[in-house]
Computed example of a mutant assay.
Amino acid sequence: MAGGEEILAGICDDSSDELDRIEEALQTGLVKLGSPAKICCARFLDGETLYAASREQDFQLLFLDIEMPGLDGFALAERLCLDRPQTRLVFVSRHESLVYDAPEYMPLWFVRKSRLERDMYKALRQYFRVTASTRVTYRLKDGFSFRDVPVRDILYVECSGHRITICRTDGSRLEKYGSLKAMEGELAGCHFLRIHKNYLVNQEYIKEVGKREVYLTDGKALEMGRDRRAAVRDAMIQYEKGSYGY
């Protein structure tokens, strides 16, 4: 795990006391894992406020109480799955039977309030497992030196002739010369998917696979190779199963 990594997490529960318990269990789980990462928690007493905040902040982890007045955990998750599919969701509830309704929202984990510390530890362990590849960096030659680009910051890679353009999540672009096949090999194991002879895409940011295009979470649509659709769809199914623990 990367030293000093900062994780922005949101916790939503309609009880201040429960927010205290969840945050304490979260920090305790981090210590038990022996992780050098730091988790910064934003606390919310209702789903609407958290949802509004999620439009402005890039939460990596969200802990949602299922039973809340107004916008409950499941309804909130439904919105977030559409708007922020890259955010990992963890449901928290004192009613264990609700776990059977949770999978359709593809949560990372289900935390029982009766087993808060134990389940929180497992949820964090799963988070670090499924996001391990996003914490590595790609070393890019920059003049006479090198620069490290976090893999999670790469949205997709585009090739035009021998020019490679690395398109980042913040809208910036980096360029190098080479082949897309070579870069595909360099990024092997980091969940990048070849969707076209000219495009290599970070699977974390693929929102939908269409008939001829792949839609990204930032609204972009990239052309997909006509003979690649089945392979791309299968790869995304496997990626989602691995990412959400199913």
Rank of each mutant, 00 (worst) to 15 (best):
A2R: 12
G3T: 09
G3W: 08
G4S: 13
D13I: 06
D14Y: 02
S15V: 14
L19N: 15
I22H: 15
I22V: 07
E23D: 11
E23N: 15
T28L: 13
T28Q: 14
G29W: 08
L30R: 15
L30A: 11
L33W: 13
G34T: 01
P36K: 14
A37L: 00
A37C: 01
K38I: 09
K38N: 04
C40H: 10
A42W: 10
A42S: 14
R43W: 06
L45P: 15
L45R: 15
D46I: 07
E48T: 08
L50I: 04
A53S: 13
E56T: 08
D58A: 05
F59R: 00
Q60F: 03
L61E: 03
D65H: 06
D65N: 08
I66H: 06
I66W: 09
E67H: 12
L71N: 02
A75R: 15
E78R: 12
R84M: 06
R84N: 09
P85D: 03
Q86I: 06
T87D: 02
V90G: 04
V90S: 03
F91S: 03
V92A: 07
E96I: 05
V99G: 03
D101W: 01
P107H: 00
L108I: 14
W109M: 01
V111A: 03
S114F: 04
L116A: 03
R118P: 00
M120S: 03
M120I: 04
Y121R: 14
R125K: 10
Q126S: 12
R129E: 15
A132E: 15
R135D: 02
R135L: 02
Y138C: 00
Y138Q: 00
Y138D: 00
K141R: 06
G143P: 12
F144Y: 14
F146L: 15
V149I: 10
V151Q: 12
R152F: 10
R152P: 07
D153M: 05
Y156P: 01
E158C: 11
C159D: 01
S160V: 07
G161E: 04
G161T: 09
G161D: 05
T165F: 11
I166F: 06
I166C: 13
C167V: 15
D170S: 11
G171V: 08
G178M: 00
S179L: 14
A182F: 06
E184A: 11
E184C: 07
E186Q: 11
L187N: 14
L187Y: 07
G189W: 02
G189D: 04
G189M: 01
H191Y: 14
L193S: 01
R194D: 09
R194F: 12
H196C: 11
K197V: 07
Y199E: 02
V201P: 00
E204S: 00
E208M: 06
G210R: 01
D218H: 06
K220Q: 08
L222P: 11
G225W: 07
R226F: 03
D227E: 14
R228N: 13
Q238L: 07
E240L: 06
G242P: 04
S243C: 08
G245Y: 11
Y246K: 08
Y246Q: 11
